[in-house]
Simulated assay, not measured.
Amino acid sequence: MNQIRDDVLSYREMCEAENVQTLQRGMNFRLNPKYSVILMSQRSNAPYRDKILSDGITVEYEGHDQPRTRYIINPKYLDQPRATINGTFTQNGHFALAVDKFKRHEEGAELVKVYEKILPGVWSLKGFFDLVDYKIELDGKRNVFVFILSLSAEQNTDSKAKIDLKHTRLIQSEVKMEVWKRDHGKCVKCGSTKNLHFDHELPFSKGGTSLTSKNVRLLCMEHNLAKSAKIE
C-alpha cells in the first residue's frame, strides 16, 4: 500500500520534479496533463490564508489576487477575480470551473499535487488531493475564493494503488518547522541531508500522532524505506 512520504525538497528540486524552470505562481492548473499543482504556506507571513483542517486530511486553500500593476497598487482591497478584463479565466477561474464540472458529474475531481513551504528554501510534498469544492468568503474588505481539497486515495498517477485514508493524517506545518530545527535538517539515523522525509516514529495507523514533534522525525529515504519494510 502506498503511503504519504512527506518528502523534503529545495525549491530547485521541486521545480525539477515538475519538469519546469520556475514555479512562480502558487496556482498552476494542469501544469501536468494528469494533475494541477498548488504551493501553499501556513507561515505567519504568508500572503494567503491556507490551512489544514482538524480532520488532518482536508486543506483550505485561498485563491489568488489580481496581479499588481501601475493601476492596482494594493490587490488586497479588490475581490479575487474569476476572469481577466479580457474574459479569459484566471487560475481561480480554472480551478472553480473544475469544481463546477465535478459537482455536475461531468468530470471526476481534479487531482492536485500540493507542496507546502515550511521555511525559506525548504518545501514539503504533501501529496495528491482531490479538488472537491470552493466557496467565496468575505474576509472583511473583499471577496476571496477558498478551495477545498481532500487528501486523495490516489497517491501515484502511474499506479492504481491506493492509500488507507482512515489511517493517514497530514503533519501540521508548525510541527514540521519544529522538527526541522530540532533535527538540524538531517536524517536522525545517519546525518544525511539528501532525500529527507518527515516520518512518524509510531505510525498513525498504530496509534501515533501528527500533532506533536515528539512523534515526528527526519529520515533519509534509505532509513525511511527500511523502517517501512519492518512495519509491513
Rank of each mutant, 00 (worst) to 15 (best):
N19L: 09
L78T: 12
R217D: 08
G185K: 03
W180D: 08
D55N: 10
D7A: 15
L202Y: 05
L31C: 10
E178C: 14
S210C: 13
E60C: 09
F204D: 07
L119K: 00
E60D: 13
K189V: 10
N195F: 14
D133R: 05
G127L: 04
D55Y: 02
S210Q: 12
F145K: 00
I85F: 04
L170C: 06
M221Q: 12
D100W: 04
S192P: 01
R169Q: 01
I52K: 07
G63Q: 01
S213P: 12
K141P: 08
L225V: 13
G208I: 07
R25F: 06
D133V: 02
I85P: 11
S10L: 10
M221V: 15
D100F: 04
D199C: 06
K101V: 13
F128K: 00
Q155H: 07
N74F: 01
M14Q: 00
S213N: 10
R217F: 11
F102H: 05
P81F: 00
E62G: 02
D164K: 04
Q80I: 10
A83L: 09
Q155D: 06
V8W: 08
K160Q: 14
R43G: 02
D7T: 09
N86P: 03
Q24A: 11
K141D: 10
N74Q: 02
E62K: 00
D164P: 02
T58P: 09
Q172T: 15
S10K: 13
T193D: 07
E174Y: 14
K141W: 05
T22I: 15
K162P: 00
A161D: 03
R82V: 04
K101C: 12
L138I: 13
E18P: 00
S54A: 15
S205W: 08
D79M: 01
V20P: 02
G87R: 03
H197P: 03
R68T: 04
N92L: 00
E18S: 04
F102I: 06
S213I: 11
N215P: 06
I57K: 05
V114Q: 01
L23N: 01
L39A: 07
P47G: 02
N32D: 15
E178Q: 14
L53M: 14
E232H: 14
S210I: 15
K194S: 12
I148N: 07
N86W: 09
S192V: 04
E201G: 13
S54P: 07
Q24F: 15
K113A: 14
M1K: 11
I136G: 03
V175D: 00
H94P: 12
K101A: 13
V20K: 02
E13C: 08
V8Q: 03
I171F: 05
T209V: 01
K230W: 12
D139G: 06
H197I: 13
N32C: 14
L165K: 10
F147Q: 01
D79N: 01
I136M: 09
K181L: 11
N19F: 03
V114R: 00
L9I: 13
Q91H: 09
